[in-house]
Write a protein that binds this DNA or RNA. Structure first.
Lengths: 128, 128
DNA sequence: CCTTGACCTTCCCGTGACTGGAACCCCTAT
DNA sequence: ATAGGGGTTCCAGTCACGGGAAGGTCAAGG
């Protein structure tokens, strides 16, 4: 299976697939002509990676999760810890973004948005 | 005023202040010895930038906002549009993160987190 | 006068996770 | 023979800095 077919099946760009090989997440075989020859297992791994990335896991987290996935002797506690840590970081990010949003919503609401120069947004940014 | 004093006052790292000069956000004068000599106006601008960055505005947004701030003939509508666009992107990001969080919360809750290998998190990532 | 240590300077590399583009090879059909 | 649509590698750029090296400057103490 060539890369564009795998890209279609996994909904990952070919560039991303090459990148994942470059950093050692997958190791597709090669045809005699140098083309990557993907097996079903490669496609499966890529789909796994795509879903993990869609959940916001970092590449290093993905590497860990993939290793756990392939380790029959894993403890689910190890998987759970990775997910929980990630979840904690997401909660932090959410709190940060909510705070930004609240401030911005307030400021945008206060601003007349007309052709006069007076602007509470700039006033806030320039406050002493 | 030297850079470390400005860093203390604006709560920005010296590296960041140098970077902001490099990309043309500020233009501090120079002493004969080559040291940056910051005026109050520079400090004010840096504080402005620090607050804009804390609200999540990109550097390019900051550049625009600073230009508007210094333009007496600005229209508040221009400021408002920058802020509203940024707010829209934050709302998108929030929705995305909430979605990740909801999925992850569910999965983490389902996972026993013990020393057995069975794990609904991995099952979900590996689903066909 | 010399040294010490805390400043300051520039320059270059690394980050994360790709994306774009150039230059080139391969395969099939006409 | 050529055209096109694959594929390949490699290099540069993204964003907003941070780390660290190599070296100049300044004030205080011996």
């Amino acid at each position: 299976m060539n890369i564009s077919e795998v890209a279609r099946r996994t909904d990952l760009p070919p560039k991303t697939i090459r990148y994942y090989e470059e950093i050692g997440l997958i190791r597709p075989a090669r045809d005699t002509n140098g083309y990557r020859a993907f097996a079903d297992g490669d496609v499966h791994k890529l789909a796994f990676l795509g879903r993990a990335r869609a959940l916001g896991f970092s590449i290093e987290d993905c590497r860990t999760l993939l290793a756990l996935y392939e380790d029959d002797a894993r403890a689910s506690a190890d998987v759970k810890r990775v997910a929980q840590d990630h979840l904690d970081r997401i909660e932090e990010k959410l709190a940060q973004l909510r705070s930004m949003r609240d401030t911005l919503t307030h400021l945008v609401h206060e601003c007349a948005g007309d052709n006069r120069p007076d602007c509470p947004i700039l006033q806030d940014l320039a406050r002493d």
